[in-house]
Write a protein that binds this DNA or RNA. Structure first.
Lengths: 224, 224
DNA sequence: TTTAGATTGTCACAATTGTTACATTTCAAA
DNA sequence: TTTGAAATGTAACAATTGTGACAATCTAAA
C-alpha cells in the first residue's frame, strides 16, 4: 500500500505523505483483497465500515424475496461504496455488493473514519465534498424524475448540457438507451418524443448531436 | 442565545455547555433575525454558509425565467437549510428561501463549519448523522419515483409501513393528497388505483387505515 | 475482414395516468 | 355550534407512455 496509490484516492487528495503515514499508523485501516464474485457487503447489512476501492470494480445488486437479482449499478476504483449511508440512524447497505473482478479495497471502521476526519481538516473537507457530490447527483436525478412528461425531462436535460457546453449544439453524454434508463422511461418512448420534438421544430437531431432550435419553448416546458 | 435553545438544535445534541461556549467563542457565529418575507438565500446563490433555524419557519421556492414562483417545501426550526449542499464543488442554493414568519437563525460560514467539526467529534458525528438522514430520505424518495406504476409505488409504500408497524393494518402517515404529491402523481389517479386494488382484493381501505389482504401479491408487484 | 452484440429508428396497439369537474365528508378556527 | 377550507371519492374523456416486434446501423472483438 504505497503513497502513490493512496494519494490518488479522492478522499486523500492534497494530503502530504507524512500526514497519511501518521493517519494510517494511528488507525486500524486494513487493505483487503476480494476474488471475483466475492461479497463485499450484504443487502441490509449494518453499514459500519467505509469501503474504498483501490483497484478493480464491483456491482451493486438488489435481491427480492423470491431470490431474483436486479443489478443497480457498477462502482470502479478509486471510489468509495455507499459513503452517504455510512452514518445516520439505521444505516444499512441498500444493495448487495459483489466483486466483478479481482478487487483490492481499503476497509475502515465507522469509528476510525470519525477519528480520521477529526485528525485532519483537509481530509474532513474531502469527505464532505465527496458526500456533497453524491448528494447533488441524487438530487439532480430526483429533479429529472419529478418532471411528469418525457418532453420535460428532455428539455431539462438538453438545457443543462447546453448551459455546460455554452452552445446550442449539445452532444449526448450517454447512449439513448442509457438516457431512457436514467429517465426511468422506455427506450421507444424516448425515441418517439425526440422525433416529435424535431417535428415540432424544437430541436434538430443527428446521431449523437442535438441542436436546440427553440430554447425559449424548452425553458417554458420545464415550468409547467 | 442561551444554552437551552442551542442544545435543542440537532447539530448540538449531547454537547456540554462548556464545549458549546468554547466553540462559539472560537468561531464567528452570528444569530440573525429575519422579518416575515425577508430573503435568507437566493436561488443559485453560492452556498457558503450554514443556516440553522432557531425559531420560525421558511419556505423554499423555485423561480422560473418568466418570474413565476413554485413552492417546493417548508422548513421549520430547529432544522438546518440545504445542509447537503454546503460542501461540494459548485454548491449553490437550489431554491430561494423566504421567511414565512418572523425568523431567528444561526448563520455559520462554511469555513467556520469546517473548523467547528474539527474541534469536536460529537459535533462531527451529529453533522454526519444529520446529513445521512437527508441523504436517506432523498434516496428513499428516488426509490419510489423509480417505480413505473402507481400500484407499485403504493405496494412499496404499504409494505414499508407494514414492516415498520409490524402489522398488516397500516395507518397512512400523510393525507392522500400529500401522498399523491410525494409520488409525483395526480390525486384522482392515486384514489382510482386504491379503489382498483381494493376491487382486486389486495387491500381493504377505510378512511386513514389500510389493511393488507394479499401481501404476497404486493411483494411480487414491486419486483417487476 | 468478419461477425456477434449493442444501439438505433419506427410502428400499431394496449395500458396507465392526467385533467376537469362535481358532490361529499372531515376538521379546525371562529 | 357554525362555517369555510381542506380532504376525499368518483366519473368520463384526453393525453402520455409502455410493450413487443422488426429492420437497419454501428462497433469492437475475433
Amino acid at each position: 500500500m504505497d503513497y502513490k496509490t493512496i494519494s490518488q484516492i479522492p478522499l486523500f487528495h492534497s494530503i502530504e505523505e507524512k500526514e497519511i503515514i501518521c493517519i494510517f499508523s494511528a488507525l486500524k485501516i486494513t487493505e483487503t483483497h476480494f476474488r471475483k464474485d466475492a461479497l463485499l457487503a450484504l443487502q441490509d447489512e449494518l453499514c459500519n465500515r467505509l469501503i474504498i476501492l483501490l483497484s478493480g470494480s464491483v456491482k451493486g445488486e438488489m435481491i427480492d424475496p423470491s431470490g431474483r437479482i436486479i443489478k443497480v449499478e457498477d462502482i470502479f476504483a478509486p471510489n468509495p461504496l455507499a459513503i452517504l449511508f455510512l452514518f445516520g440512524e439505521n444505516n444499512r447497505f441498500p444493495v448487495q455488493v459483489t466483486a466483478r473482478e479481482s478487487v483490492t479495497a481499503l476497509v475502515i471502521s465507522k469509528q476510525s473514519v470519525l477519528r480520521m476526519l477529526s485528525m485532519n481538516e483537509t481530509l474532513l473537507k474531502n469527505y464532505l465534498d465527496i458526500s456533497a457530490g453524491f448528494a447533488a447527483r441524487l438530487s439532480r436525478k430526483l429533479h429529472f424524475m419529478s418532471f411528469r412528461t418525457i418532453r420535460q425531462k428532455l428539455a431539462m436535460y438538453m438545457l443543462s448540457l447546453s448551459k455546460a457546453a455554452q452552445s446550442d449544439i449539445v452532444e449526448l453524454d450517454k447512449t439513448k438507451s442509457a438516457l431512457a434508463e436514467y429517465f426511468g422511461v422506455s427506450r421507444p418512448s424516448l425515441e418517439r418524443e425526440l422525433t416529435k420534438m424535431q417535428q415540432d421544430g424544437l430541436i434538430l437531431t443527428s446521431k449523437k448531436e442535438i441542436e436546440i432550435k427553440d430554447k425559449k419553448e424548452l425553458v417554458r416546458l420545464i415550468h409547467l
